[in-house]
Amino acid sequence: MVWTLAFDTSAAHCAAALLRGDQLVAARAEDMGRGQAERLMPLIQEVLAEGGCPMSDLDVIGVGVGPGNFTGIRISVSAARGMALALGIPAVGVSTLDATALDAERPVRVHVPAPRDQVYEQGFGCEPAVPLMRAGGTDGDTPVILPPAPAELAERIARIALTRAPFETEAPAPLYLRAADAAPAKDAPPVILP
């Protein structure tokens, strides 16, 4: 039976879930604004212990890649990449958008809260087919759904990772949807005359 572990720290939580085959055997989530980097691995170890799965027995890792808190996403993605390297198993990056839309009736749009009253949005069976960030507020007739509670989010990430693992070729990478805040250097340098 295939063991799949998934975890997510893309918002103000630390969440992990363990599947045996397609059965959920353990899931934990804790709300936290900070300290996810210190809590994540112990939480994973607790979930694995509860499910009776030594880490070395894992077959698939699923990791939430956001969109959401940049630092939070990197915490989980970096841990997943390290574990995948050491265990020699695939790590599958799953977006909160895909996880939220799992099993939802189409067409549907997923909204994930973004900073400054904006939203990350993706349509399933409708526009925008490619995820983007835009000003918040609802518009249009297509129903809008929001992400599930963190423990369920982790479970859905695990389910999607399990189905995608055989076809996954790329290491998980954060889904930022927003360029890094950085301004090009001001004050043009002088022109040098020979």
Partner: peptide, 20 residues
């Protein structure tokens, strides 16, 4: 720079935990 340090620390934790 904390963002970079975190990536290294989490990757190291992942490797260490996986291998015991």
């Amino acid at each position: 720079l904390i963002g970079g340090v975190l990536s290294g620390v989490m990757c190291a934790k992942g490797i260490a935990a996986a291998l015991g």
